[in-house]
């Protein structure tokens, strides 16, 4: 079990990252709080990590899984799975971007399937290489290459041009 000091430090260090992952998974703020609690309770009980990079990768994976599990709970409650982007961003608190602040690229990314959004976020925002993303998501590298390629193709179709190199 981690000490209170370790947990406070981890929350300070990684909270923004977790919030960003929740954003790309279009989670409502009420669900974001649940996800934070799930992730950091697991963190409190997790074994020590070899390196800070290992710790960060672990937190990314646990957060993505928590977002997916939240979707399953939604499914379980017969909720409507088609998110409305405008409603989503208008309902968030001050920490979120608002609909009219989001670029065309971000709007397009939020329309992609979730697994494509994950790889786009990890590759372009967090700067991970394909092999690192494969380790984080427990998929093989070819799958990650395929998802990145298809994500970029879909973005090109939506946006009518190449926004990502």
């Amino acid at each position: 079990m981690r000490t209170e000091e370790e947990i406070v430090k981890a929350i300070d260090k990684y909270a923004d990252m977790i919030q960003k992952i929740c954003f790309i998974h279009m989670k409502q703020q009420c669900d974001v709080d649940d996800i934070f609690q799930t992730v950091f309770l697991k963190y409190a009980k997790a074994p020590l990590f070899d390196t800070p990079e290992h710790e960060k990768a672990w937190l990314i994976r646990v957060t993505i899984n928590a977002c997916k599990d939240m979707l399953k709970n939604w499914f379980h409650r017969y909720a409507d799975l088609k998110n409305n982007l405008e409603d989503f961003t208008h309902n968030q608190d001050q920490s979120y971007l608002h609909y009219n602040q989001i670029s065309d690229l971000m709007q397009a990314i939020l329309k992609l399937p979730e697994h494509y959004r994950n790889v786009i976020y990890l590759y372009y925002y967090e700067g991970y290489q394909v092999n690192e993303i494969a380790n984080i998501l427990h998929k093989n590298q070819n799958t990650i290459y395929t998802w990145l390629k298809r994500a970029k193709e879909q973005l090109k179709t939506i946006l009518g041009g190449d926004y990502l190199e």
């Binding site: 947990i7 977790i18 919030q19 709080d33 934070f36 608190d93 602040q101 971000m106």
Partner: peptide, 20 residues
């Protein structure tokens, strides 16, 4: 970074305190 607008996304102090 093409996704640099994500730099504007931050966890609120309320969320952090509730989590802790």
């Amino acid at each position: 970074n093409p996704l640099q607008e994500l730099n504007n996304i931050h966890a609120s102090q309320t969320t952090k305190e509730k989590t802790l």
